[in-house]
Amino acid sequence: MSKAKANSKPKDNVSPTVRIYIMGEAKDVPASLTIMKAIEYAGYKLTRGAGCRAGFCGACATIYRKEGDYRIYTALACQTMVEDGMYLTQLPFVPAEKAKYNIKDLSPSAETILRYYPEVARCLSCNACSKVCPQDLSVMDYVQYALQGQIEKATEASFDCVSCGLCAIRCPAEIPQYHVAELVRRLYGKYIQKYPETLDKRVKEIEDGVFEEGFKEFMSMSHDEIVEKYKARDFIDQKKK
């Protein structure tokens, strides 16, 4: 890798710095920054590569190598600190098609998975997907569970996925794992997870107007009356003094 020279060292900067390479260009940045803040520190105004800035949206998928190290690393730029010698680039977009289905017409089975994502059967069990996952999920395991129709296990293993798409870019079998995981979870949520009985009962009560009178009364109350009602609430679930 060619080493471009840093053009400026931050002056009168007391905090220690590290040298990173943003798309090849050397920059000395405070060692205390996240990759995202370091890129901004270096002068970039992000449009792609930043979203929630807190580790939830997956917009900031980042790929890097380190000086003297052949391995490819990945990270969420908003949740990872800079290190000396990082050669960084961000993924602006992940080309990976999501299958379309009507969730109401499906069954929670391996056949469903294979109908919409037949490429799942091509999984080589190479584990490259798990290695790149910045959430440290066992991606390969959930793909295998999905292939076997073990929807609950696949759901558990994929639940913390932030859909950054790094797995889908790395996969030699060209599987869009994170889209498969979405189908898996919706199948679980709709067909396998128990359905709490309280819900339909309450929805029906509301439709039947059971609370109509109560609301009417509240709406006609003066400010002071509603304050009194509020103060008089009981707390049956919580420890209170």
Partner: peptide, 10 residues
């Protein structure tokens, strides 16, 4: 930004 950059997802 992306469909997913929002307060809701967080």
């Amino acid at each position: 930004l992306r469909h997913g950059d929002c307060n809701t997802i967080m």
